[in-house]
C-alpha cells in the first residue's frame, strides 16, 4: 500500500512539473521576448542597455518623452485620489451598514458588484454627459477620471473590506468603545480602522494596480494616463513603451506577490 502511495505521489509531482513547465513557458515567452526586444541595438543587431538607462533617468524622460512624464504623474495622482475616495466611501458605509442598517447589506453589495456586469466601455458611453457636468463644474482635469475609477475598483475593494469586516466583531468592538465614551468618529478612526488594516491595505493595493493599468476610460475621454502615454509613444518609439509596459507589469507582480504574504501572516496570527 505504501509503495502504491509513493508511486502515486511521484506521478502526481511529475504531472505538476510538466503542466507548470508548459504553461509557465507560454506565460514567460512573450515577456522574455519583449525584454529582449528592449535590449536590441539599432536595426535589431547586437544588444545594449540604452532603453533602460533612459527610462531610469527621469530628467531625460521628462525632456524627450513629455507624454510619458505627464501620463506617469497623472496615473500616480489618480491612484492616490482613487484610493482615498474609495476608502472614505466604502469603509464608513460598510461598517455603518453592519452596525446600524443590516437591512441595507444586500443593496450595498449589489451596487458594489454591479460594475462587474457593466463593461468599462459601456460605462464610458453612460458617463459622457456626467463628465460634461464634472468638467463644467470642476474644470477639465485628468484627475477627475478618478471618480470613474472608484466605480471600477468597487467590486474588488468591496470584497477585500467585506472579508476584513467578517473577521472582526465590529458590533462588540464599537459597543465597547461607545460604552467607554467614544464618539462615532473615534470608533471609526481608532477602533474599526486599525482592525481592518490588512483588508484596507489589500483593497488599496488592488485599486492602485487597477488604476495604473487602466486604459479604456482615459483613452476614450482623451486624457493622458500612463497606459495612454504608453500607447502614444508606441507609435514612435516602440522600445521605450514596451519597456514601460514590462516595468508596470513587474511592479504589479511585486505588489501582488508581497500582498500574498501579508494576507497569510494575518491568518497565522489569529
Amino acid at each position: 500500500m505504501s509503495g502504491e502511495r509513493a508511486s502515486f505521489r511521484r506521478r502526481q509531482s511529475l504531472f505538476r512539473r510538466v503542466v507548470l513547465a508548459v504553461v509557465l513557458t507560454f506565460f514567460t515567452l512573450p515577456l522574455l521576448a519583449s525584454l529582449e526586444f528592449t535590449l536590441q541595438g539599432p536595426g535589431g543587431t547586437g544588444h545594449q542597455l540604452t532603453t533602460w538607462t533612459t527610462l531610469m533617468d527621469f530628467g531625460a524622460i521628462a525632456k524627450e518623452y513629455p507624454d510619458l512624464k505627464e501620463g506617469f504623474l497623472s496615473s500616480i495622482l489618480l491612484a492616490i485620489f482613487t484610493v482615498i475616495v474609495m476608502l472614505i466611501l466604502l469603509v464608513p458605509t460598510m461598517t455603518w451598514v453592519r452596525l446600524r442598517l443590516p437591512g441595507l447589506t444586500r443593496t450595498v453589495e449589489f451596487l458594489c458588484l454591479l460594475p462587474l456586469t457593466v463593461p468599462a466601455i459601456v460605462l464610458v458611453v453612460g458617463l459622457t454627459p456626467i463628465y460634461a457636468w464634472v468638467n463644467y463644474l470642476l474644470g477639465a482635469l485628468t484627475l477627475w477620471l478618478g471618480f470613474a475609477y472608484v466605480i471600477l475598483v468597487l467590486p474588488y475593494a468591496y470584497r477585500s473590506i467585506d472579508t476584513g469586516l467578517r473577521a472582526i466583531d465590529v458590533k462588540t468592538l464599537s459597543e465597547a468603545a461607545r460604552s467607554l465614551g467614544a464618539g462615532w468618529g473615534t470608533v471609526m478612526w481608532r477602533v474599526v480602522l486599525p482592525n481592518l488594516r490588512t483588508a484596507v491595505l489589500s483593497a488599496s493595493f488592488l485599486s492602485v494596480a487597477l488604476v495604473l493599468g487602466e486604459y479604456t476610460i482615459a483613452s476614450l475621454f482623451a486624457r493622458k494616463n500612463l497606459q495612454v502615454a504608453m500607447y502614444l509613444i508606441g507609435k514612435s518609439d516602440a522600445k521605450i513603451s514596451v519597456a514601460v509596459g514590462l516595468a508596470s507589469l513587474g511592479f504589479a507582480f511585486v505588489v501582488l506577490f508581497g500582498m500574498s504574504f501579508v494576507g497569510t501572516a494575518r491568518k497565522e496570527s489569529r
Binding site: 515567452l29 512573450p30 515577456l31 521576448a33 519583449s34 526586444f37 528592449t38 493599468g213 486604459y215 497606459q227 504608453m230 500607447y231 508606441g234 516602440a238 513603451s241 514596451v242 514601460v244 509596459g245 514590462l246 508596470s248 507589469l249
Partner: peptide, 10 residues
Amino acid sequence: VALAFAFMAS
C-alpha cells in the same frame, strides 16, 4: 496595452 505590446515586440 502592456500585453498587446509584449506580443507585438515578440
